[in-house]
């Protein structure tokens, strides 16, 4: 079962990414348990985790948020590829931090990035998905952590 400090590692990693990359911390909204279909925004960076814990962590964000984030990072390229790159990097960084916190036996895949509303998110049997809304400026994204 997911422990609080583990969940916090993912959450803090996410908010810290915003703080570090865009000099403006993200806040987290009211967390809840996922029921039914995953809530997906325009771009989703997914990382499969195996080893000590099995499951997925994904960061999904609307195009508008990523655009502003890129702007804050002084990017001028708002292309599709740039958006994909950004969510992938967020997901990768979050999980990398987690791996550092949890040790070597946390095996993390290279992020796969999906655009659109139907990504193939592998369901981990027996793992409930925690949805943590990530609010940044006027935008909202979601961090979903589903680990056994």
């Amino acid at each position: 079962m997911l422990r609080e400090e583990e969940l916090k590692t993912f959450v803090d990693g996410t908010t810290r990414y915003f703080e570090v990359a865009a000099q403006q911390p993200a806040t987290i909204g009211s967390p809840y348990l996922l029921e039914g279909e995953p809530a997906i925004h325009d771009y989703t960076g997914i990382i499969n985790i195996s080893g000590k814990r099995e499951g997925v962590v994904y960061f999904t964000a609307p195009r508008a948020m990523l655009t502003v984030l890129l702007m804050k990072m002084q990017e001028s390229d708002f292309s599709h590829d740039s958006m994909r790159d950004l969510v992938g990097e967020v997901a990768n960084t979050i999980s990398g931090n987690a791996r550092r916190d949890f040790g070597h036996d946390f095996v993390i895949s290279v992020p796969s990035v999906f655009a659109g509303d139907k990504p193939q998110i592998p369901q981990q049997p027996g793992a409930r998905a925690f949805v943590i809304p990530i609010h940044w400026r006027s935008h909202s994204a979601k961090l979903v952590v589903s680990l056994t």
């Binding site: 609080e4 009211s30 967390p31 809840y32 409930r128």
Partner: peptide
Amino acid sequence: TGNDFLPLVLKLDELLA
């Protein structure tokens, strides 16, 4: 803040389990 609710949702998950 949302952070304060993290333990809550974890506890809820634990209770459901």
